[in-house]
Amino acid sequence: MASMSYIRYIYNRRKRKEEELVPVIDELLIQYIFDDSNTYTEQDIYEDFTKRVGKLSKTNLDLITKRLILAKINFNFKVNEPFNRLIRALGIEAFIEKKLDFSNAYDKMKGIQELSALSITTSESKIFPFTYSVNKNVRKEARSSYLRLSKNDPFKFFDEATETLNEWDQINLLKQLLSIENTIIPNFSKWVAYSKNESIVSFSIKMCAYFKQKESIPTLIETLKHDNHILRAETIKALGELQATDYEDILRDMYANQPDNCQVEIIRAIGKFHTGKSLDFLKQTFDESIQTDTKKVIAEAINNYGPDGKALFEELLNTETGFPHLILQHIANPLIKFK
């Protein structure tokens, strides 16, 4: 009971202080980041903050860092000189880096995250030791940040990674890739072709599609022979995104021998190609398919396949009966958002 009341006391005191400080901090951040006529020096900023917020203690700096990250996320502004000046004036970079040196794994990971969130380009050497940390979470976070920070070889860990990239790692990596400013995104087909790590291959295929890297198409075509059907499906999806229309015949020819997930992706890719060459194929697959989910995808592909596809869709709508007719109605219905 004593512990509980003590915890409540500390918590309430901290909360009250936070409630008092948050509006003051927000006001100061707006003043020093968004004011166009910003001519303040680092000394001005430091003095103003210490005067209105109080001593720049660990608690206060933590709160300022949190509000700064929130402001950056909400206003989505690019790093500019006033922002950098504020970081320098308050010693935020040094404060976060201290977390990396003298704290537990949780705080180290959060420190790396904060550096990323604030787009602070701390020195590569500061992060590098953590890229080999024994702690999996710290290691992953550091490797993800290394992508953004390294000037020499940002994709070093793509070459040597033996660990599986899970979906969260992939989401984090994409976030880092999108935050790189003035850096050329590499051609991901390199890892599609040579990486022995299937999760790196999978991520690279997605990135080829996401960054519309058309030069990766020949490599992707080779991946269609991969044993892993999940990678094949990912590749077909990417070919659709990249409008690899020259390879439509290959996709059509391989359709019959593929598992359901690959068949669905082939139909979607052909639907995106809009070449007009596969209308008979789509009609035939619609007639022959016994999988309802695949039939839905085919119907949608036909409906979106240009004027000829639209005409065929209308014809099917008038001639089909029973469940196939219901599928066509389902696809044609604009009220159904997720077909």
Partner: peptide
């Protein structure tokens, strides 16, 4: 952390 929510909200891979 709360930052994870933001990462998920803005990712096309979610």
């Amino acid at each position: 952390s709360e930052l994870d929510d933001n990462t998920l909200m803005s990712s096309p891979l979610t």
